[in-house]
Nucleic acid binder design. Structure first.
Lengths: 212, 212
DNA sequence: TAGCATGGATTGTTCAACAAGAATAGATCT
DNA sequence: AGATCTATTCTTGTTGAACAATCCATGCTA
């Protein structure tokens, strides 16, 4: 494995784990020391993360963990609606991605029963990644992955607690059922409604947290 | 303006101008000398372009100009269909982006009459960027811009001549008219057909050029 | 208090060096 | 000749130190 690529992965892991909080400044000197790499190598990784939207880079002011505000959240959900719904609506029957969706829903049910809400959250992301995989487009999946990662930062920022995802397990189930047994259009409509509710919940958390 | 950001722009310009041909290897030493920057600074720019899909980076083998093959082209058009059609179908009436679309079509007509095919190509890109701007989503526009830039490399690779865009000026006009006067669904359908024909033309050029 | 110098810290960029992997050419063997 | 191994060479990966450019906080001045 490439050193730099592994560095990007390490940084990404800590970002989505919340160890590097949204808005936190990432000092080149400090992080270089912590990860035991040179400043130049670290800066290359920063450029990658910057393009992915996980960090902001302001010239001469350094990089900081992306800290999505409400308009960012709205924008992210706009992207989700366009991509996820369009993919689902145009998805073929019997796509292998459907099996991934099924596994994610099933696992989420089990995890919810076991009160393992962290796992529920992870499987929720798997479900939506599986939806986009129905497009058979690697580029769409990459862009979508970046957006989901950014949304994860939004959750962290306002501390959307994992167990709040509980109601959405059943919603995913309904989307899957509609895709399998009804029409793609119906499934896409259910998914759109899901995304609307999810967005409202996140924006509500922002309002409670008094964040822009 | 930031030095590095300007370097990315310079490199992008030369890429889409075709001065750096698809598949060409980009030697760090040579390019650093040419742009009068250090290898380290150049490498930072490479990481940005890599995330944008304009260059490929293989560890220990350096970076080369992206050279989309037929499956890349197919993937790119998949993305275009999902994004452009979904945006257009869900676009509100009276969005300011419609005025941009109109200007692009009008200008393309004039440029075509003047045999200025390079300008026709540029305005064609403006038109489709304007379509995506109907989404009011900066992230969607950014991702879409990257994909269009990559498609530009595909054109360059098989030398899709600019005047081949001629029939598409009228198609854009029809899409615009449908959006303005008919239904978003109808406009999206027309755009989808447009994209199908455009994709076929590019793939045809690939077949003639004997490229994968 | 508002505005302005000043010093300290951080980022931007370069350079030279070396390690590590890949590619090339040459030598060897069958 | 053709294939395979090997040594050399080239390129990339990474580092550390250095300096310039810019920002930021502090305290001074009016």
């Amino acid at each position: 494995m490439n050193h730099e690529s592994s560095l990007v992965n390490q940084l990404t892991d800590r970002l989505i784990a919340g160890e590097l909080r949204p808005g936190a400044r990432l000092s080149e000197a400090a992080l270089a020391k912590e990860f035991d790499v040179s400043r130049n190598t670290l800066r290359e990784a920063f450029r990658v993360l910057g393009e992915q939207g996980l960090v902001n880079h302001i010239p001469h002011r350094g990089v900081s963990v992306a800290s999505p505000n409400t308009s960012d959240v709205i924008d992210i959900y706009r992207v989700r609606r366009h991509i996820e719904c369009s993919v689902l609506e145009n998805a073929p029957k019997n796509h292998p991605g459907a099996e991934e969706m099924r596994r994610a829903v099933e696992g989420a049910h089990a995890a919810a029963a076991a009160d393992d809400w962290l796992r529920v959250g992870t499987l929720n992301m798997s479900f939506h990644n599986a939806v986009v995989s129905l497009s058979d487009s690697s580029r769409l999946m990459r862009s979508f992955g970046n957006v989901l990662a950014e949304l994860r930062l939004a959750f962290l920022k306002v501390e959307v607690l994992d167990f709040l995802h509980a109601p959405f397990v059943e919603r995913n189930q309904e989307v899957l059922d509609a895709y399998l047994n009804e029409s793609p259009r119906g499934a896409a409509a259910k998914l759109g409604a899901y995304l609307g509710d999810s967005e409202r919940q996140v924006l509500g958390a922002y309002a409670r947290a008094g964040q822009a």
